[in-house]
């Protein structure tokens, strides 16, 4: 499957998206030691191509659910940057009014239905959302982003079974960065067979091993068209990827010894950002980079200048009227 006619436009779009996420998170990592961000941050650096490849193939009215490593998904789906940074700062202008923090990003205006700090918990939510879409005969789809750790959870299996049983319009995206914190997935799984397991529940499953943003985009683009057209039911996509930074926090973690520097370096050599960058004229690239830099400056300034919630807000939002 190729979309060659559109490729040059896509290069630009994808470069901008990945560059923007990378730069936002690098800025978070830079600011983090100042303790202005009082929230654990699980950076997506290295994994951006998965979110960008998937979300670029979606429509604005498609709905995504994600994880505590959710910055990339949030931004790729169009989540408001100011709202995200203010949220990390705990400010009342944050996307969750400062109550959620980095692990609980949400932007319902852009179909981002929330991220969760409990592994696997949003998978059935995406399935339930798809149930609602089907019942109301909508042609948008729900997408569930989760990691390889979530595959260990019962909710993963319960969700896949139910989605297949009811032929629900949900795309499961497993971002397999190989590690649940520091535990390799083969320390937790009998075999490297996540897609086989998904297939056995009764859905097509595809594995993309090299983190190529175009392969991910092309697959999702073709898949969601089929999903919208009728009752093809759920589809499963496993994207092998690599988290460059530590599990939580802004630093590297090679000193821990659970993985080698070379393992990550191999992924860095095939980084989508560099390969996309090399396909663009330098003036086009510069223009994108300048625009992103100014957007980031603006967002951090917005967060800095925003107010913390008033203490009496403690009891707001416990119940919906």
């Amino acid at each position: 499957m190729t979309f060659s006619a559109d490729k040059s436009i896509l290069y630009k779009k994808f470069y901008r998206e990945i560059y923007r996420i990378r730069r936002v998170e690098e800025e978070i990592a830079r600011i983090y030691p100042t303790d202005k961000i009082k929230s654990p941050v699980h950076l997506s650096i290295g994994q951006e191509a998965v979110s960008v490849g998937v979300c670029q193939a979606l429509r604005p009215d498609d709905i995504v659910f994600g994880t505590y490593r959710g910055h990339a998904m949030y931004l790729a789906k169009g989540g408001d940057l100011r709202g995200m940074i203010a949220e990390l700062y705990g400010k009342s202008t944050g996307c969750a009014k400062g109550i959620g923090g980095s692990m609980h990003l949400i932007d319902t205006n852009h179909g981002i239905m929330g991220t969760s700090a409990i592994v696997g918990t949003t998978i059935p939510l995406a399935v339930g959302y798809a149930y609602g879409l089907k019942l109301n005969q909508k042609d948008s789809i729900a997408v569930s982003f989760f990691g390889d750790g979530a595959v260990d959870e019962g909710a993963f299996h319960e969700s896949l079974n139910y989605a297949a049983l009811k032929k629900l319009p949900v795309l499961f995206v497993c971002e397999n960065n190989l590690y649940a914190i520091h535990s390799h997935h083969l320390q937790r799984h009998h075999s490297d067979n996540i897609t086989e397991r998904a297939r056995s529940y009764g859905m097509p499953a595809k594995r993309i091993e090299d983190g190529d943003v175009f392969k991910i985009y092309d697959f999702v683009k073709a898949t969601v068209e089929k999903m919208r057209a009728g009752s093809c039911g759920p589809v499963f996509l496993e994207c092998v990827t690599c988290r460059w930074k530590e599990h939580v926090g802004p630093c590297d973690d090679f000193h821990l010894g659970y993985r080698s520097e070379e393992e990550v370096a191999a992924w860095k050599r095939k980084d989508s950002l560099s390969s996309l960058g090399s396909l663009l004229e330098s003036d086009i690239r510069n223009k994108i980079e300048l625009a992103v830099a100014s957007e980031i400056t603006d967002a951090f300034k917005f967060a800095e200048e925003s107010l913390f919630p008033e203490p009496e807000r403690l009891y707001h939002y416990l119940f919906k009227e």
């Binding site: 709905i63 659910f65 239905m113 918990t121 949003t122 998978i123 059935p124 939510l125 995406a126 399935v127 339930g128 959302y129 798809a130 149930y131 609602g132 879409l133 019942l135 109301n136 729900a142 019962g154 909710a155 299996h157 319960e158 969700s159 079974n161 139910y162 049983l165």
Partner: peptide
């Protein structure tokens, strides 16, 4: 299915979709 945790999540997701 006999999947209390998953089906509670499904109910929550359906509620987010307006049910």
């Amino acid at each position: 299915p006999l999947a209390e945790d998953g089906m509670t999540g499904v109910a929550i997701g359906a509620a987010l979709a307006g049910l």
